[in-house]
Amino acid sequence: MQNRLELTVTVEREDPLRHTPAGMPVLEMWLRHHSRQTIATLERDVSCEIQAVAMGELAKKLAGKVAGNTVHCTGFLNQRSLRNPRLVLHIEFVEFVKG
């Protein structure tokens, strides 16, 4: 089974870098996507906001540098916690989009 998501987004905001009780760096952020997509030969505007999280070295690398920027990211979806089923994108790769 596959669970991969690839999006080009604007990082609307990011929280300050925090650490888990085990010492793992965590960066939470909110992403906004806009595009035009074709489905069943019809074009439509697509827009969504998604919560995302980066962990470990990637979180440290991105902290304080992504808010307001457009990035291309890939990762996987998971629920926020055992008690909270809201989906969160766990980011594994980020590339800044120029322009």
Rank of each mutant, 00 (worst) to 15 (best):
H72Y: 04
H33Y: 07
M29T: 14
P21E: 12
M29Q: 13
G75W: 13
E12V: 15
C48M: 12
S47M: 01
A63P: 05
I91S: 05
L7M: 15
R36K: 02
V66F: 02
E92H: 00
K60Y: 10
G99D: 01
V71D: 03
R32Y: 07
E12K: 12
Q79V: 08
N78V: 05
F96P: 01
L87S: 08
R32F: 10
N3Y: 02
D15R: 15
N84W: 08
M1L: 10
F76E: 09
N78C: 00
Q37E: 15
N78Y: 06
G56R: 04
R4S: 07
L7N: 11
G64I: 11
E6S: 15
R86P: 09
Q37W: 06
E57G: 14
V11D: 01
L62R: 03
V53E: 15
V26I: 03
E57W: 10
I50L: 04
E95P: 00
T70D: 07
V97F: 00
L7V: 14
P21G: 12
P25R: 06
A22N: 13
P85V: 12
N84T: 09
H34Y: 12
L27A: 01
E49V: 09
I91L: 10
S35C: 13
A67D: 06
K65N: 15
Q2Y: 09
H33G: 11
G56Y: 04
R18G: 08
P21K: 12
A52G: 07
G75N: 05
E14N: 01
R4T: 11
G23T: 04
F76D: 10
E12D: 12
V88Y: 06
K60L: 07
V46E: 06
D45N: 09
H72R: 12
G68M: 06
S35T: 15
T41S: 03
M55D: 01
E49T: 09
P85G: 14
L62P: 02
L42R: 13
V53Q: 15
A63V: 00
G56M: 03
L5I: 13
A52S: 05
A59L: 04
V71I: 06
C73L: 10
K98L: 06
V53T: 14
E92S: 04
G64N: 11
R18H: 12
F93H: 12
C73W: 04
R32I: 10
D15T: 10
E14P: 07
I50R: 06
V9A: 14
V71H: 03
M55R: 02
D45Y: 05
T70I: 10
L89F: 03
D45C: 00
V11C: 07
D45F: 05
L7T: 13
L89N: 00
H19R: 11
L42D: 04
Q2D: 05
G64P: 10
T74S: 15
L58T: 02
P85T: 14
L87K: 08
E57M: 08
S35Y: 10
W30N: 14
Q79E: 08
R83W: 07
G23E: 03
L42W: 01
R32W: 08
N84P: 04
L27E: 00
Q37D: 09
L87H: 11
M24D: 12
V46W: 10
R4M: 08
T70G: 08
H72D: 11
E43N: 00
P85I: 11
P16M: 03
E49P: 09
C48F: 08
P85Q: 11
H19M: 02
M55P: 01
E49W: 03
V71P: 04
F93E: 10
M24F: 12
V97S: 02
